[in-house]
């Protein structure tokens, strides 16, 4: 009976850790003065409404690789749109001359490197990818 309880607790803890590890968070570089953002403020930056953080500093939003699970999960959670819709949305903004889409990278490593090194960068990463060089400014509700 005790063995069964330990197993159940282990499975529950593993499930919690797994969920936490795969949860997406929005982060900025450690040197960025922003400490938190609302979901609306993240939509403003990622959907090209504003080109700056709320404090007026220019924001440089970064995207994950096209077609990656993280990118799909992020935009579904942010604006409830799939990647095809996001691509069409950005085609409209880009070719109307209103705004440029978030920066794309060939690999996640390059994206994470840019996130760590640029004070203007903002990105979305798995909670497990957060390290001391980043600051979590928003967590999506589970």
């Amino acid at each position: 009976m005790r063995l069964l309880s330990i197993r159940l607790i282990s499975i529950f803890m593993f499930a919690c850790l797994s969920h936490s590890a795969y949860a997406l968070v929005v982060v900025v570089g450690k040197n960025n003065s922003i400490n938190s953002l609302s979901k609306t403020q993240i939509i403003d930056i990622y959907m090209g409404r504003y080109s700056t953080f709320p404090n007026g500093i220019v924001a440089k939003p970064l995207d994950r690789i096209a077609g990656s699970p993280e990118k799909q999960q992020f935009y579904q959670a942010l604006v409830n749109k799939n990647e095809a819709k996001i691509n069409a949305y950005w085609a409209r903004l880009l070719f109307s001359g209103r705004a440029s889409p978030p920066s794309n990278f060939a690999t996640d490593t390059e994206m994470l490197e840019e996130l760590r090194s640029s004070a203007q960068a903002i990105g979305y990463v798995l909670e497990s990818e957060v390290d001391d060089s980043m600051k979590v400014v928003y967590r999506f509700e589970k």
């Binding site: 080109s51 700056t52 007026g56 085609a91 070719f95 109307s96 209103r98």
Partner: peptide, 28 residues
């Protein structure tokens, strides 16, 4: 600032939904 933008030159006339990207078939 974050609220005001000024432009000068040749621009699309923004009077209907597709006015600024009507040549971009991918976008609609």
């Amino acid at each position: 600032n974050s609220s005001f933008e000024f432009r000068v030159g040749r621009m699309n006339t923004d009077i209907y939904f597709l006015s600024e990207y009507k040549s971009v078939g991918y976008a609609y």
